[in-house]
Simulated assay, not measured.
Amino acid sequence: MRRRFLVPRSVSFRSPAAGSLAVALAVGLLAGGCGGGGDVQVEVKGKAGAEPSVSFPKGGKPDAGYAEKSLHDGKGAPVRRGDLVVADYVSYRWNGAKTRLLDDTYKAGVPAAFQTGKLVKGLDRALAGARPGERVVARVPPADAYGADGDPAHGVSAGDTLVYVLDVRAAFGKNAVVPGRQQTLDDPKLPKVGPVAPGRAASVLMPQTAPPKALTTQTLVDGGGPVVASGQLVAMQYQMMNWRDGQVLGSSWQDGEVHWAVAGRQQLVAGLDQALVGSRVGSRLLVVVPPALGKAAWRSRLQLKPSDTLVFVVDVLGAY
């Protein structure tokens, strides 16, 4: 699998994870829309948070228009446009009397991450206002999904209605930061990290010394959450810099968009992957990645030298 990290949008690799339609359905931005209301028409059984059993009306066709229903209340702040939403879900295509399962994150064992405001319209609508712990069922007509063209590459045919059952696990706004007081590092051979403020790049001062040759991780804020395990989806804020000149190569705080990756699946540069696995949710980390552990196809696009060391400041917001 191709390594991925969160670089400026002009060179961002936000491709779908292998075998999952979760992000594929988040790529389309289709215009149009239908009125709400109506019956979702499907019967959903099972406890919220567990894999649901979904039954369609026998021989029935989907009604026109959008419909949604909340089957279990959630708690916490409602999802707002621009939030990163972590959710387990199943999705189906429904055309005439024919239905087919498209995706099931419960069986995969890893939830999906949805960047709201960048999804097909019906999925954006289903997630808007939902709270962590809530189960939402939505019937999305073609006009709010992939229309007359469909998306054959991911099993969606022309004119398909989509049905989602979504268990919202968490939502992170663009200003999310880990709680806790940041420690001051006294090591003169490591970067000095100043305050982190939403909407701006973090202040980081590089030392006038050669970078360490080995992977180096320092905890700036101690997290009291669970330990991140390989295979978990990690929601994070981050900043990436070049040790050589201190240039900021990417910053989610500055961009206003929380990012994610599945730890231990080569979706990050190897050094950062190693640093995340075993860290605690709620931590802020300083990670210095030597060239051998910072290889990625996008380095040349950022005009990085093969000898350049990468520096990351990462807030570990959640792991699922």
Rank of each mutant, 00 (worst) to 15 (best):
L302C: 09
V277P: 12
K98G: 01
L84C: 05
A112D: 09
M236N: 00
S12F: 07
P152Q: 04
G271A: 08
Q208K: 15
Y106C: 03
A235D: 10
E257N: 11
V90E: 01
V90L: 04
L215T: 12
A210V: 12
V163T: 01
D63K: 14
V287G: 06
A319K: 09
D222S: 14
R301M: 09
R265F: 03
S20K: 05
D83Y: 14
A50T: 13
L162E: 00
D308Q: 09
D39W: 04
L317Y: 05
E134V: 14
A108Y: 05
A67D: 08
T209A: 15
G159D: 11
D124V: 11
S53K: 06
R181Q: 08
A296R: 02
G194P: 01
T99G: 06
A64W: 10
A26W: 11
G129F: 03
R81T: 15
A17C: 02
V234H: 07
V178R: 08
Y89V: 07
K107W: 05
V27F: 14
G28R: 15
G37Y: 03
T309F: 07
A31F: 14
W243D: 14
H154Y: 12
P142I: 10
Y320L: 02
L101M: 05
V287P: 12
G224E: 01
S157D: 13
V11C: 08
L84V: 13
W253K: 04
S283W: 08
T99L: 06
V277D: 06
A158C: 11
P111A: 07
V269C: 04
R181S: 15
N95K: 13
E257H: 04
G35W: 12
A197K: 15
G173I: 07
G122W: 12
M240R: 07
P290V: 03
F56M: 09
G38I: 09
V289Y: 08
G155W: 11
E257S: 10
R301D: 13
Q182G: 09
D144L: 05
K121R: 15
T216K: 03
Q208P: 07
K192C: 00
A170R: 12
Q208E: 15
G225D: 06
E43V: 15
K58F: 02
V277A: 04
D315F: 09
G82I: 06
K58D: 13
G133I: 04
T184R: 10
G36Y: 01
G224F: 00
S53R: 08
A64F: 07
L30W: 04
A17L: 07
W243E: 12
R80L: 05
L190C: 11
R125N: 07
G59R: 08
G129S: 06
A214D: 15
L102F: 00
K61P: 00
L102P: 06
R139G: 00
E68W: 04
P188S: 11
Q247H: 15
Q266R: 09
K69F: 06
L286I: 04
G60D: 15
W260G: 00
G82L: 09
A112Q: 08
V277L: 02
P188Y: 15
D187M: 00
L249F: 03
G46S: 10
V11G: 00
P152N: 04
V136I: 14
